[in-house]
Amino acid sequence: MPDKMHIKLNVNGKDEEFLAEPRELLIYTLRERLNITGPHIGCETSHCGACTVTIDGKSVKSCTMFAAQASGKSVTTIEGIGGPDDLHPLQEAFKEHHGLQCGYCTPGMITRATKLLEENPNPTEEDIRFGMAGNICRCTGYQNIVKSIQAAAAEMNAAAASSSEAVGNKTVEAAE
């Protein structure tokens, strides 16, 4: 049996170090080793996206990556996106617009959607459907997921606009 490897990850802002078999898949590291059970397993063949996490700025299906490959990188899961005291606008929007039913796809959906909105802050419905096509939902028929993401985008853009206004005001004040 091959030696265990020394693996270092930063998960949701926290450094983690451990020894693991090279074949340990990142999804199991997260779920079973680190007890981060937000990312789920739906297919294991990189089709469903339930296991989606963000790794160094990329949306990745963590069932198709070894923990060893991720060593040295930063991983963000749904748990790192927002909690009870700092909900992400996407989390609010999914709740508000009934973007989930059984909730099994939801962590992967929202995690992917955070990245989608970074890539494209003003997506059309078509952009959303195309950009979310790596995530399967069996319950919702997607219509309300699309709606939720649109609503979150609007909310985030409005917040960005008002905060840049605020920043703008400050510079004006400073200039005065």
């Binding site: 990745v60 992917r112 950009g131 790596g134």
Partner: peptide, 9 residues
Amino acid sequence: IADPQVRYM
């Protein structure tokens, strides 16, 4: 090709 996540990798 594939979907956004796969294209990242």
